[in-house]
């Protein structure tokens, strides 16, 4: 079976290796900076590309549980690394916005943070990812207890939905791409609402 082939193939892959893979989009970007491959609006290109990688990693992270439940494919040991990378790229996205795009114009940054729905929504998503990144280690799970840790990490769901909304809110008209991301996020969240087993009948 394909599933077993994948499981077998992934057996030598250690979770930390996901980080090596996760560096690639940033590395490609750095190469493009030095080869002048970012087009005539390099700031927007960098900002959008790191934002999009964050979004893709969020979607990838949301796939782990449904894949295990509905396809029997267990990738759970890579989930932490995917989540941490999503946070790293979201942070880069925010930093590029502050430094290269808004160029430390703090009054404009401040105004955006309170007035612009797409900024508010994006920043809220970032703030939700922050405690998740900080607690993405075994020590935090032990300290908090598994149940509390799990509850905290449900923040992933609103963070993902807000990240998708952030993309939709910043475009003109209705291009397909942000709608596809949002559709994927909502579908992956929706899968979690499917009851695990047929509800047992209560005795009369």
């Amino acid at each position: 079976m394909l599933r077993d082939t994948i499981h077998r193939g992934l057996r030598p892959v250690r979770p930390w290796m996901v980080y090596t893979l996760g560096v690639l989009p940033a590395l490609l970007l750095v190469i493009d900076v030095f080869t002048g491959n970012l087009g005539v609006d390099p700031v927007k290109t960098i900002e959008h590309r790191v934002g999009e990688v964050a979004l893709q990693l969020i979607v990838a992270g949301l796939c782990i549980t449904p894949l295990r439940r509905f396809a029997g494919l267990n990738l759970i040991r890579f989930r932490r690394q995917i989540g941490v990378l999503a946070f790293v790229y979201a942070t880069l996205h925010l930093l590029v916005w502050i430094t290269l795009d808004l160029q430390f114009r703090w009054s404009e940054i401040g105004a955006d943070l309170v007035k612009r729905p797409y900024i508010i929504v994006g920043f809220a998503a970032f703030l939700m990812l922050l405690p998740l990144a900080v607690t993405s280690n075994n020590a935090a799970i032990r300290r908090m207890g598994a149940a509390a840790w799990q509850r905290l990490h449900w923040l992933t769901y609103p963070a993902a939905a807000l990240a998708g909304l952030h993309f939709i809110l910043l475009v003109k008209a209705w291009p397909a791409e942000p709608l596809i991301y949002m559709g994927a996020i909502l579908a992956l969240l929706g899968l979690r609402l499917i009851p695990r087993a047929a509800p047992r009948r209560m005795p009369a």
């Binding site: 700031v43 795009d101 955006d112 007035k115 612009r116 797409y118 809110l169 910043l170």
Partner: peptide, 12 residues
């Protein structure tokens, strides 16, 4: 309504 017009990025 969705973004500021106070400043602009000069392309190039």
């Amino acid at each position: 309504p969705r973004w500021s017009q106070a400043s602009e990025r000069r392309i190039g």
